[in-house]
Design a protein around this nucleic acid. Structure first.
Lengths: 119, 119
DNA sequence: GTAACCAGTATACTAAAGTATAGTATATTT
DNA sequence: AAATATACTATACTTTAGTATACTGGTTAC
C-alpha cells in the first residue's frame, strides 16, 4: 500500500483504515499504557520495579494493564521458576515497533503545542 | 530535534515527550473524534451533514466533540449570518496535519493485525 | 396551521475506566 | 518471632465517558 496515498484512501474507503487506527489506539490508550511501555523501553523489568518506577500506579492497575498489553502482543511475560519466583516483563517486537507511531505523535504534539501557544 | 534519536531521548528524558504524546492522544481519543475528523477530511460540513454521515452519533455527542475539537484547534467553526443561520465545520491546518500521525497508525495497525493473525 | 428542517441544549441515566484499601501465599532478613 | 519483600488478587467505591429521550427557537414547505 502506497503510504503517500493513504489519506486519499482514508477518504474513499474509511472502514478498514479506521479499524487499523482503532487497533493502534486501543493498544496505547488508557492512563497507564504509555508509562508502562515507556518504562519497558529501558529493558526488562520485574513487577515491583515497574510499580516503583511509575508514580501513583496501583498494583491492581499495573496487573490489569500488563495483562492487557500481553493479550495484545505488546508485552511478553516470563516466569522463572526460581525460588522465590521471578517474573519479568519486556516489550515484544510489535511493542518496540510502536516507536514508529510514537515518534510522529511526539512531533505532532510538540508542533501543535507551539501552534497553540503561538496564537 | 533529530527524529532518529527520539526513542533514545524518550528513554533518557521521558516527561516532555510523554506530554507531547498525551497531547496528541487527547486530541484523537474518545469514541467519536476519529469519525468526525474522518468526515471532515472530505471537506467542510454542516452540523446535520455530520450527524447523518456518522452512524449512531447523537446530537449531544456531536456538539460536545465538535466543541472539544474546536477548543483544541483541530476544527474551525464558521457561522454565516444568513437566514436561516448556516454553521460550517472544517479542519484547521493542525487538524489536517494529523494525517502525519494517522498514517503511521494505519501502518502499524495493519502490520500488527497481520502479526497477531499470523500467529 | 401543522409538519419538517436546522443547530443545537437539558436532564437523566448506564457503562466503562480508574482508585482505595486490604489481603493472599511464598520466602528472606533481622 | 516479627518485619519485609515479591507478585499479585478481591472487594468496594468514585469518576469519567457515553447513551437515551426529549425539548428549544427560529425558518421554510405544504
Amino acid at each position: 500500500m502506497d503510504i503517500s496515498s493513504e489519506l486519499e484512501n482514508l477518504k474513499s474507503c474509511p472502514t478498514q483504515f479506521v479499524m487499523a487506527i482503532n487497533d493502534t489506539m486501543n493498544v496505547i490508550s488508557g492512563k497507564w499504557k504509555l508509562p508502562i511501555i515507556g518504562s519497558l523501553l529501558y529493558g526488562k523489568k520485574r513487577f515491583r520495579e515497574l510499580e516503583r518506577g511509575i508514580p501513583k500506579i496501583s498494583p491492581r492497575m499495573l496487573s490489569k494493564e500488563l495483562k492487557d498489553l500481553e493479550a495484545n502482543g505488546i508485552v511478553k511475560r516470563t516466569v522463572y521458576d526460581s525460588i522465590p519466583v521471578i517474573v519479568e516483563y519486556e516489550l515484544t517486537i510489535s511493542g518496540e515497533s510502536l516507536n514508529q507511531v510514537l515518534e510522529p505523535m511526539i512531533e505532532w504534539g510538540l508542533q501543535h503545542r507551539k501552534n497553540v501557544i503561538g496564537k
